[in-house]
Nucleic acid binder design. Sequence first.
DNA 1: TTGTATGCGTTATCAT
DNA 2: ATGATAACGCATACAA
Lengths: 346, 346
Amino acid sequence: MMLHRATPTIQDVARLANVSTATVSRALATPERVAEDTRRIVMEAVELTGYRVNQTARNLRRQQAGAIVVLVPNLGNPFFSRILAGIEATASRAGLNVLIADTIQPGAEQARLGDYLHNNRADGILVLDGSLADDFFASAGRAHPPVVYACEWNEGTTLPSIRFDNAGGLRLAVEHLLALGHRHIGHVLGPWENVLTRERLRGFEAALAAHGLSPRPDWLFDGDFTLAAGARAAQQWLKMVDRPTCITAASDEIACGFISELYRNGISVPDEVSVVGFDDIDIAEHFIPALTTVHQPRMKIGEEAAAALIDLISGVNGAGRLASTTTVLDAHLEIRASTATPRVAP
Amino acid sequence: MMLHRATPTIQDVARLANVSTATVSRALATPERVAEDTRRIVMEAVELTGYRVNQTARNLRRQQAGAIVVLVPNLGNPFFSRILAGIEATASRAGLNVLIADTIQPGAEQARLGDYLHNNRADGILVLDGSLADDFFASAGRAHPPVVYACEWNEGTTLPSIRFDNAGGLRLAVEHLLALGHRHIGHVLGPWENVLTRERLRGFEAALAAHGLSPRPDWLFDGDFTLAAGARAAQQWLKMVDRPTCITAASDEIACGFISELYRNGISVPDEVSVVGFDDIDIAEHFIPALTTVHQPRMKIGEEAAAALIDLISGVNGAGRLASTTTVLDAHLEIRASTATPRVAP
DNA sequence: TTGTATGCGTTATCAT
DNA sequence: ATGATAACGCATACAA
């Protein structure tokens, strides 16, 4: 009769190999500190028993978690998938697991997130949600694992962050439109509370100012980052008597929603209005028309953020753990078919 | 001078409350097994010290991991984001953390994934990758945590799975086209090795057969689930002398790529060819034209899969752990603007 | 109801 | 180079 064998422990291996558990542990963790012969015997016993180290026990002993947690605002938003892929690839290469937590969850703020901070569940925290304030992490002077912001950040943060040059991206967009001959430029905003919205608006205004133009308040369309917001902005645009000849959108989704709604109302892009997006999501290149947009290297953002966090965890920076290092990735404009010279000269 | 206090342990709380560690443990885990007064005193001490239970120690003692792992084929694919959101929401409600692993990672197959299976890292495994065979999990007769397939599955699997009615979805698509008057119907396939590709093709063929039609091999376009594959299929379509008047695509991305490439070549959808997608991704409704497509409730798939796995973990099904339960979610067709009556009668 | 004592599986320290 | 042993922090069986 075949008994259902329980998971083998280091003890089982030691017994079979006729060595102490300490030797087995060493043979696996630091092979060079074990004699050639012994190592062979131990490895054989490992094979035979099918032993796998129990990570929970190892983590308890080593006072670590073997994992990082990523705090995502709305996991359902496909924008984050590439970033997550970059994070996972980098973390797994470093032997770290990746936990995900959706900050949109009700009741998440206190209980669940606090769990990750103070319960030895994670060796480090990657925050993609700029609405989480610094003092959330530094609460009550407790010790907590290293924190790195990616994509979004909290204004005035003293924590390290990996950012994209959002203002610069919008500047490129506006300059492209100016070069095409546009002078009447509008902008569809993301949600006001989002730091990216404000950064992109800042770039928009700076680019106009650099060319002696000032933004017209009625050409600033409120919104969020969604397709629906773009469609709403289009409705407003349709109703205007004095319309901008082109629009910069705070996201590709906004741009697509905007174009789509105009199309349904018989207005053609770029013939009657030019549109620039932001993000360069997959569909942008295949949209109708192909979307001119600011490209964000999302995979790379994830990789860099994870790498920075791992550095912090392994203490590469030594006492520099507290130093706020901000990495800003350069913006790049992908020029496609949704922008053209204005049909009517201003 | 303010010393940097280390993380408080259950010992610290016990000392302060003047009770044993066992009592503290009970007061936190099973309050009803502790006297009213004692509980109050303990809770006060917990507050004062800021004690948080060490999950690693708890997990070691309880012989569990407190987490499930989701095996995703290509995390960068935005299709999975909603599913992940559903999984995370359900798991976190059950107090379980969610680990993500990208099965696309090189070397992942053996080392990393085996880690999750046999190293006490996860209490359960959610597999979104149908290319992972059953025997990968059941290797060498080892004990391993419960496994549930979601979305994709391995043909002939004996493991539980949550599926979408892929064949039924394609059937709805074909019947819609037939009802519009189409008789020349093509299909753009996903990757051959993918079970969803085969299921959807099966539905395609069955629907045709049910109406006395047989599929024409030259109207079956090879591909994968990407935008680029749709564009390639469009190129082929353009070159044909005898073209299908409509196309069902194995994914929305294929459909969008197809439509987009036709548009660049001056062909209009649905005027000259009708297109049906599959998935109902966010952009579908806002595409030009709005895409008729098979709606997949991705969030719900994630929720149901997580719920099933959690049931298995908590042993709700008792000995039924080995029983293969397959849940199939119903298909639904979202009719929009990319389909119309054929321009030329056959 | 509460306390005592033991062990979860591993690794690090200290001998040898 | 190897072995004995003591923790890591918690939860439970058992005793009181």
